[in-house]
């Protein structure tokens, strides 16, 4: 029987630095069979490990339609992310997963997609954006509103520029007041305000909102006002986890184990759960 806590080994294929404390890493399985068999759904997460330092939970931020390895993105904040910050091409890390439910991309077919993200929440949105772009015919208009505290805190800026050139994709970038630079061409303001100003239609739409709690809290009234039902608004929770397989007992939000029944929930589902996140 396989030891469910034992990771697969992955080789670092590329490291990209986004900001002063955010990097993304592309990894490939060392074992050819693992690479062959590996499948995941966008919105799922993995448990990545730096040997000698420990494990950390990150969203798999590459699209599930890409066959070459997978990517994750992290901010340097703790013991494991500080160790991962130092990794270079060719290094080995551990991976367990994929875990969690993922986004209901099948149910989203035929809908307009609204993506609202703040700060380090871009990676879990990025995988969904790429998935939709790779399956462009299945989805309607795509609106992306992405904000950060300052221009220097925006991640995946090159891809934001690339997405904005695609057909029926509208990208709005914003930074908090005071976070702009002299040649900043994007909006200035917080994500909820900027999004409301953008006048996006609610008909036949679903929204994916990920960001700090305060952003989500202030975005909800805007979505309510534009008439988007809460069952059509999705988010991804980030409760602390250790095992990822529903055993270690810390990620639960009321009766729901976020690692197994989450991390993706509709706002309607979240409203029925206790405020334990």
């Amino acid at each position: 029987m396989k030891n469910i806590y034992q990771p697969d080994l992955m080789e670092v294929a590329a490291v990209q630095r986004h900001t002063a404390d955010v990097k993304s890493v592309k990894v490939r399985f060392r074992d050819a069979d693992c690479a062959q068999q590996f499948q995941f759904r966008v919105g799922q997460f993995g448990i990545f490990s730096s040997f000698g330092y420990g494990e950390s939970v990150f969203n798999i931020c590459s699209s599930s339609t890409w066959s070459d390895g997978l990517e994750f993105c992290f901010r340097k904040t703790g013991r494991v992310t500080e160790a991962l910050w130092e990794i270079e091409e060719g290094d080995t890390i551990g991976f367990r997963g994929p875990y969690g439910n993922g986004y209901p991309v099948e149910a989203w077919k035929g809908k307009n997609l609204i993506f609202l993200g703040g700060g380090i929440a871009m990676p879990p949105i990025r995988c969904a954006i790429w998935y939709a772009l790779e399956n462009r015919a299945d989805y309607g208009d795509i609106t992306i509103v992405y904000g950060a505290r300052t221009v220097a805190d925006l991640v995946y800026v090159n891809e934001l520029a690339e997405w904005s050139k695609r057909e029926r994709v509208r990208v709005i970038q914003c930074v908090d007041p005071g976070g702009e630079t002299p040649n900043w061409t994007g909006e200035i303001g917080f994500v909820p305000t900027v999004f409301e100003r953008a006048q996006v239609a609610a008909e036949n739409s679903v929204a994916l909102v990920i960001g700090p709690p305060i952003m989500i809290k202030n975005t909800m009234p805007v979505l309510d006002r534009m008439g988007l039902p809460r069952a059509s608004v999705y988010t991804s929770l980030e409760n602390r986890m250790k095992c990822g397989v529903g055993k270690c007992g810390r990620c639960n939000c009321g009766p729901v184990y976020v690692c197994k029944e989450g991390p993706v929930f509709t706002m309607e589902e979240l409203a029925a759960l206790p405020q334990d996140y």
């Binding site: 806590y5 420990g54 494990e55 904040t77 409760n239 602390r240 270690c248 810390r250």
Partner: peptide, 30 residues
């Protein structure tokens, strides 16, 4: 009670008993 923690120590990945009463149990990195 079965909640546990997973840590790296001395070249091993180890699981240890944890407790929901510890203040660090659910503390996010943020």
């Amino acid at each position: 009670c079965h909640c546990f923690d997973i840590v790296d120590e001395h070249g091993e990945r180890v699981r240890n008993w944890d407790s929901c009463q510890f203040s660090l149990f659910t503390l996010h990195a943020s």
